[in-house]
């Protein structure tokens, strides 16, 4: 993949995918929690692997994450990531006010399956709107969860892109609890595989120059 062939129009398209996708996901999250969730304007960055780690507060930062592979016309990886305390709050709300502990390594089956279900619903709504917008056939794999260091988790999403490039294109949408707008609660990361970019741009009528 030649990153120099990606122009501003292409980046705008990716930003719009992040916007629509995360918009739908935020609505789903808001419905699930029965409270307002606000998302920030998505950012599309062509950045080094090290910079990706900095986006989530350093590679050692502990996060709760849901990962899934996108299969179909434009394969890629998707992550839903939350700081650990905020994941505990979210899951606690979801499980009816139960106190949830994620850091101790003794996660109840219930908590993990709740986290997985959150990931499932959010990524499903993200992916559906991504698919509707582009007309591409996209399906999610069964989501997998991990509570661990952000670097260890995110690097897993880089294995496709890292084979061909030292930079990755990351579509990031941060979202917040509407009452505390300054505080970022979580991230959606969409990382299409290298070959998927041309397919996405073609589908929207803005091919990459040969």
């Amino acid at each position: 993949m030649d990153l120099t062939k990606i122009n501003h129009l292409h980046l705008d398209i990716l930003r719009e995918i992040g916007n629509i996708g995360a918009g739908h996901a935020a609505t789903a999250l808001s419905t699930m929690l029965n409270k307002a969730v606000d998302m920030k304007v998505p950012s599309v960055n062509v950045i080094s692997f090290e910079e990706i780690m900095e986006m989530v507060g350093g590679s050692e930062n502990i996060v709760a994450s849901v990962f899934l592979r996108i299969v179909g016309d434009a394969p890629g990886c998707m992550f839903f990531m939350l700081p650990i305390e905020q994941a505990e709050t979210l899951l606690g709300d979801l499980l009816g006010g139960e106190a949830v502990q994620l850091t101790e390594g003794i996660h109840s089956e219930m908590t993990i399956s709740a986290l997985q279900e959150v990931g499932n619903i959010l990524s499903g709504s993200y992916l559906t709107s991504f698919s509707d917008f582009t007309g591409l056939n996209l399906q999610p794999s069964v989501p997998a969860t991990s509570i661990d260091m952000a670097g260890a988790i995110l690097s897993f999403g880089l294995f496709e892109i890292s084979a061909v490039s030292d930079l990755a294109i990351v579509i990031d949408t941060a979202f917040t609890d509407i009452r505390r707008l300054d505080e970022v609660k979580g991230h959606f990361f969409l990382m299409p595989d290298p070959e998927s970019f041309a397919k996405i741009f073609n589908a929207l009528g803005v091919p990459m120059d040969e």
């Binding site: 661990d148 952000a150 988790i153």
Partner: peptide, 22 residues
């Protein structure tokens, strides 16, 4: 860093963070 190489001699130490499948 990720995908990086470095050298060290005492008294310094050398460290990398967040190894997953790496």
């Amino acid at each position: 860093g990720i995908a990086d190489i470095n050298l060290v001699t005492p008294p310094n130490t050398i460290r990398t963070t967040g190894l997953g499948s790496c």
